[in-house]
Nucleic acid binder design. Structure first.
Length: 185
DNA sequence: CGCCGGATGTCCT
DNA sequence: GGACATCCGGCGC
């Protein structure tokens, strides 16, 4: 099956539109070749109290105010990195959090194929994500590539987002079949 | 199922 | 100086 860049134009829409369209897309570490298929996403918007872009642009959330097509990486709880895809026009302050995936291929450990990587911090760790990825392009010569093999996984569930204290009214979490079931309080 | 600790960047006072 | 964070594994019930 041919791998090609994910259609960049798709990212120009607002994050609640893009998030379900990323189910089935692939993220590849350009150095190691590790390939993970996305099965769970969440959208964040600037008028959304749960979003890092809700208040203002800061050094931490700068990537969210770039134009669609770069990564936003943040550090949380003193030890975890999380990976987002920036969507929408420049200065709009949007992103899609990549919450879970399935290992599609791993040259280093072929046996790990098919393993579910459930949780944004575990997914980021598996892909070798840290602050160096923040603001880099999802395409071209970027260290982390957003790809597609043509697969679009159907949306299996739409719920409110995980572990947020505000903005719970918005149902912007999108899971494909096989994504981990989680309590959504 | 619920609670808790790990360990630190970021932003606010 | 301090509160708190888009988490997760481990433990107890």
């Amino acid at each position: 099956v041919e791998l090609e860049p994910f259609v960049e134009q798709t990212l120009w829409s607002d994050s609640p539109v893009v998030a379900p369209m990323l189910l089935g897309a692939l993220i590849q570490n350009a150095s190691t070749g590790l390939l993970i298929r996305i099965i769970e996403t969440e959208a964040y918007m600037p008028d959304d109290p749960a979003s890092h872009s809700f208040r203002r642009l800061t050094e931490r959330n700068r990537a969210m105010f770039e134009a669609a097509g770069c990564w936003y990486v943040y550090f949380v709880y003193g030890m975890h990195w999380c990976l987002n895809v920036v969507t929408g026009p420049a200065d709009s302050g949007q992103a899609v959090l990549i919450r879970a995936g399935v290992v599609e291929s791993d040259k280093g450990r072929p046996s790990s194929s098919g393993r579910t990587v459930d949780g944004p911090a575990k997914l980021a760790r598996a892909l070798g994500v840290d602050k160096r990825i923040d603001q880099t392009s999802c395409f071209g010569e970027g260290p982390l590539q957003l790809m597609s093999d043509g697969t679009r996984l159907p949306v299996h569930s739409v719920t409110s987002r995980v572990r947020i204290s505000v903005g719970k009214d918005k149902e912007w979490r999108f899971c494909a079949e096989g994504a981990p079931v989680r309590r959504v309080s």
